[in-house]
């Protein structure tokens, strides 16, 4: 009896934890990451400065492992398990929310794939092969500007990865709010849905302009985060 209760509690707690880790820390990290990277729009110096600030954080490896990597891994692995349990039916039941349900699972997987590649590209290189954080800017620029068969596949993959991540995050916020019971009324549900959508679009634009900047040198957001301000990433 006791044990049964314990195991069943586990399922509930895992689900809650899964939905929570998607927001904190993973979602928060995503926002931070896109923000930091967008500092490139203000020029290389600003970007390097921003990266540097982070590198200087005390106990960074601990933050990275326990604050980001482990929760992320949990969110990803448990998420894959959940995704495999789903039996989507958006063709038979064509409703917006049902499509979002499907996309949530698809983007989750896509984000994970992208993330693996992205981690290989930078983190793994840094940890195992001695890449320095100073080389991030150049590497990014080189990769994103590269063309394969005349196409900037790398950049396209980044756009896709970015899109997946911000969608997954935005829609995940709505899911989180429902799942934790933060919103209940119809109106609250609507407000949260639209706010999350707006946030997603905003994050996408931020990330997209960063990618475009690295791959083409064009600034889509001419002001950037910092053209008007002095480089002061601490302000975030």
């Amino acid at each position: 009896m006791e044990q049964k209760a314990a195991t069943s509690r586990r399922a509930f707690l895992l689900r809650k934890a899964h939905s929570l880790t998607g927001i904190i820390p993973v979602g928060v990290f995503l926002v931070e990451h896109l923000w930091t990277n967008s500092s490139a729009l203000g020029g290389r110096a600003q970007f390097d400065h921003a990266v540097d600030q982070i590198q200087k954080l005390p106990a960074l490896p601990i933050i990275e492992v326990f604050g980001i990597f482990l929760p992320l891994a949990f969110h990803a692995i448990y998420g894959i398990k959940l995704a495999t349990e789903a039996r989507p039916n958006p063709i038979a039941y064509v409703h917006g929310r049902n499509w979002l349900y499907v996309l949530q699972r698809v983007t989750g997987v896509l984000t994970l794939l992208f993330l693996c590649a992205h981690l290989w590209e930078f983190r793994v290189q840094k940890w195992l092969f001695g890449m320095t954080s100073g080389a991030f800017y150049d590497t990014l620029q080189a990769h994103l500007a590269a063309t394969t068969w005349g196409l900037q596949l790398y950049a396209l993959a980044y756009v896709l990865g970015l899109g997946s991540a911000v969608f997954h995050f935005g829609n995940g916020i709505v899911g989180f709010c429902l799942s934790w019971g933060l919103v209940v009324s119809r109106r609250a549900q609507r407000v949260v849905a639209w706010s999350a959508a707006a946030l997603s679009v905003g994050l996408f634009l931020l990330g997209f302009s960063t990618i475009v900047f690295f791959s083409t040198g064009t600034r889509l957001l001419p002001t950037g985060q910092s053209a008007l301000e002095p480089p002061c990433p601490e302000s975030k």
Partner: peptide, 24 residues
């Protein structure tokens, strides 16, 4: 709050769409 409980909802919200009694 056990296995297969409320936390398993995937928010596809098909339920409200098909409910013949329009239960929220």
């Amino acid at each position: 709050m056990g296995e297969g409980g409320v936390a398993d909802c995937g928010k596809a919200q098909n339920c409200v769409e098909v409910c013949p009694k329009e239960i929220p």
